[in-house]
């Protein structure tokens, strides 16, 4: 798929939730809507494909990657943080095609990728049909496998506060997503809540009710070197899935089970995960 150059004068989000002020935040036209994208750092390029928490502004992991000498580009999948709702995405195939367009639009095709959770699932699926989409891959707790004896937990049949506890080992680690900024104007407060709801909805659209779509039938096509990372305290995908992925991926070059880290381990242990990624991708 031909690469699409990014506009020279990207539109920038102003106001909004105010959490993107430390980054270059922009929106790119995408189909009938737009995609949000944040970037930071200088150096070799790396893409971050987010998980269920989306890209909630100044999360420490992007900073940690930047501090490790990376120029990070973090696009938001349709429906997630700042991107338009995923209209027209009926099934996994539609999502993968959208992701393929997204990486071209963002200018990150062929770059190494650190992908987490739902983003890791999408990255794997994309890699099966488009080997050149990414260089090396660091995958943090990807969805996609299902063991009925050790099932993936349901992160939606719960209250908002309990879902927060499922996403990271330390609930405080996801403050940028779940908490409202102090002194936020009332109208922005409402929109922040709506943004959060839409991000959660997009996750549901991807992985409800059972996040297994047959990847094990095509995983042999993923020839990229893959480093697997999993939080030891992942309350959604059991840590045993780390071994399951290792057994079926053709080219695993590293396996890391990170203590004191939950499902989105990069929020719990940003510096450690960034160091793992840097070691794997350098």
């Amino acid at each position: 798929m031909a690469s699409t150059s990014r506009p020279t004068r990207p539109s920038r989000r102003t106001g909004g939730i105010g959490q993107l002020s430390a980054y270059a935040a922009e929106t790119l036209p995408f189909r009938e809507g737009h995609l949000a994208l944040v970037s930071c750092g200088e150096g070799s390029p790396v893409t971050y494909l987010h998980g269920m928490l989306g890209n909630p502004g100044e999360h420490a992991f992007l900073k940690a990657l930047a501090n490790n000498g990376w120029r990070v580009t973090a696009p938001s999948l349709p429906g997630f943080t700042g991107s338009s709702e995923p209209r027209g995405l009926r099934n996994l195939h539609d999502w993968v095609v959208a992701a393929s367009e997204l990486i071209d639009l963002a200018g990150v095709t062929g770059h190494p990728v650190v992908a987490s959770s739902v983003g890791a699932m999408i990255a794997l699926e994309l890699a099966t049909i488009r080997p050149e989409a990414f260089d090396a891959m660091v995958l943090i707790a990807p969805f996609g496998l299902w063991d009925p004896q050790d099932p993936v937990a349901d992160p939606f049949a719960t209250t908002l506060s309990n879902q927060r506890k499922m996403l990271t080992a330390d609930p405080a680690a996801s403050a940028s997503f779940f908490d409202d900024l102090e002194e936020m104007p009332a109208d922005l407060l409402v929109e922040h809540g709506v943004d959060r709801y839409l991000t959660r909805s997009a996750s549901a659209q991807l992985i409800w009710p059972i996040p297994e779509f047959g990847i094990s039938e095509r995983i042999h096509l993923v020839k990229n070197p893959v480093t697997l990372v999993h939080g030891a305290k992942d309350a959604i995908i059991p840590a045993s899935y780390l071994n399951k992925w290792e057994q079926i991926l053709p080219n695993v070059v590293g396996v890391h089970c990170v203590e004191e880290a939950g499902h989105q381990a990069e929020f719990d242990r940003p510096e450690d995960i960034a160091a793992i990624a840097t070691s794997a991708l350098s």
């Binding site: 939606f156 049949a157 209250t159 809540g193 709506v194 909805s201 549901a204 409800w208």
Partner: peptide
């Protein structure tokens, strides 16, 4: 009814969320 079953994300429209 367990509250975790009552409000899965996406069930309500953005307008309903916005209206509180």
């Amino acid at each position: 009814v367990y509250a975790g079953f009552a409000d899965p994300p996406g069930y309500k429209t953005p307008n309903t969320v916005r209206a509180g």
